[in-house]
């Protein structure tokens, strides 16, 4: 069953190194008296979760959505709105005055992302390729401008709130909050791997490779794709809730098309089709933002160069470069 195994030994070693960096890095930084690095690592973990979510649609299903910021931002606003109502005591819905529980916020974020993803996916998935990309972008932009112009929750100022609470951990402090986000990432990665190995994942990956063959076998690609799109949106929504909690702020920029592009870049940078590709991309992205951003405001120029380099020289991304060889089937 070698061809079905998910990782070569070198890729497994690279995976281990990435996770070790992510887990031990913040702990070491804090011991050395640099709590700021904990926040950086938290951001990397959250972006990794969001990119892993997009990877479900883009990597397994071949659905290049340019509108996943919609679900990231909706997740962020779900968290912010629940927290704002919990703060003011004003009823949100059916006499319920929101919640300060991070877990509740995540559930609400996933629910809201699902509600948005079903109609968006059902319409967008009637197209493919560039048209799919443009129509998902259009939906995300609609939600973006709606958030900008809706004054009840801050409009273009965004929505500030106090970070939510978590059972048994003081989530207001950097390190415990990092553990929460890292835990969420590990759960997301496990779900990705389980889905990929399942019958659903097999059929979904087959629709990416050859939809004609899948149809000839008696499977409708549409249902598989819509399911993947919705699951993907829910994971990205959960990441959005964590991101807003990290910043104590739900901002319209979370909904912007730049955010959608960033998520795609994370996947391409790290290595599409590999379990930890999006995570590697997120770690690299946050590191570049911090190091290069310290030298120049125009650090994204170098990000552009990196993406260009990956596109021309290393189609498998960072992990492809390290692990080498074909990605698994």
């Amino acid at each position: 069953m070698k061809s079905l195994s998910s990782a070569s030994p070198r890729e497994a070693a690279a995976n281990l190194a990435i996770l070790a960096l992510l887990i031990l890095g913040p702990w070491a930084a804090l011991s050395a008296g640099h709590p700021f690095y904990v926040t950086l690592a938290t951001k990397a973990a959250i972006l990794a979760l969001a990119a892993t979510g997009l990877h479900l649609a883009l990597g397994l299903g071949g659905l290049v959505s340019f509108g996943h910021a919609a679900f990231f931002g909706l997740g962020g606003y779900a968290a912010g709105i629940l927290a704002a109502h919990a703060g003011s005591g004003e009823a949100l819905i059916l006499g319920w005055a929101g919640s300060r529980e991070i877990l509740t916020m995540i559930l609400a974020a996933m629910g809201l992302a699902l509600l948005a993803a079903l109609p968006i996916g059902a319409i967008s998935l009637r197209t493919s390729g560039v048209y799919f990309l443009m129509i998902t972008l259009a939906f995300a932009q609609m939600i973006y401008y709606f958030a900008l112009s809706w004054p009840a929750y801050g409009g273009d100022d965004g929505l500030s709130f106090r970070r939510g609470i978590f059972p048994g951990l003081n989530s207001a402090r950097p390190l415990p909050y990092f553990w929460i986000c890292l835990g969420a990432l590990l759960i997301g990665l496990a779900l990705f791997q389980i889905l990929r190995a399942s019958r659903f994942g097999t059929a979904l990956e087959a629709t990416r490779q050859n939809p004609q063959r899948v149809e000839a076998l008696g499977i409708e690609p549409f249902g598989l794709r819509l399911t993947a799109f919705a699951l993907s949106a829910m994971m990205v929504g959960a990441a959005g809730a964590l991101f807003a909690n990290l910043n104590r702020f739900a901002s319209p920029s979370m909904l912007s098309w730049q955010m959608s592009g960033e998520l795609i870049v994370l996947i391409l940078l790290g290595g599409r089709g590999r379990l930890l590709g999006p995570t590697a991309g997120a770690v690299l992205f946050v590191a570049m933002e911090h190091v290069l951003g310290g030298w120049t405001e125009r650090w994204q120029f170098f990000l552009g160069l990196a993406v260009l380099g990956v596109a021309v020289f290393a189609r498998g991304g960072l992990l492809g470069l390290i692990a080498g060889g074909r990605r698994d089937g």
Partner: peptide, 20 residues
């Protein structure tokens, strides 16, 4: 294996790995 699962109509099973 994909053809077998298509015949069985079980492509919406999410948890159990196909391998083995």
């Amino acid at each position: 294996m994909l053809a077998v699962q298509a015949r069985a109509g079980t492509s919406f099973r999410f948890l159990r790995p196909t391998r083995g």
